[in-house]
């Protein structure tokens, strides 16, 4: 099996996610872009797993999903409380730690 097309797709998804993280201001969109990057990685893992004919990559992909789920729980909680305190979900507004 040739994984090249899958990998192109994974790289495309990862690039879209990374660009979104860097240029978007809305915390929810940034968050979704992060998820996009994770899923790009998952796609690559699964493709390689298929190519090698073993299950290692698929197991790693499950781990990634578990971590992503946990991350979503924590991340959404932060975003919600941030929105409550400043009535905005812009990541640039949360810049209190600079001098």
């Amino acid at each position: 099996m040739n994984p090249v097309n899958y990998l192109y797709l994974a790289a495309l998804l990862f690039t879209i996610g990374a660009t979104g993280v860097l240029i978007r201001r809305n915390a929810i969109v940034v968050f979704m872009c992060v998820e996009l990057m994770l899923n790009a990685c998952n796609l690559a893992f699964v493709a390689f797993s298929r190519m090698h004919g073993n299950l290692d990559g698929q197991i790693i992909a499950f781990f990634t999903m578990v971590v992503a789920a946990a991350e979503v729980v924590v991340g959404l909680a932060i975003i919600v409380s941030l929105f409550r305190s400043r009535h905005s979900a812009s990541v640039d507004d949360a810049s209190l730690m600079k001098l």
Binding site: V21, V91, D92, L99
Partner: peptide, 17 residues
């Protein structure tokens, strides 16, 4: 050097990338 620490999460992300 201080100017690098601008507090914007996105710029930290750029350095990470």
């Amino acid at each position: 050097l201080r100017k690098l620490q601008n507090g914007y999460a996105r710029s930290y992300a750029v350095s990470m990338f």
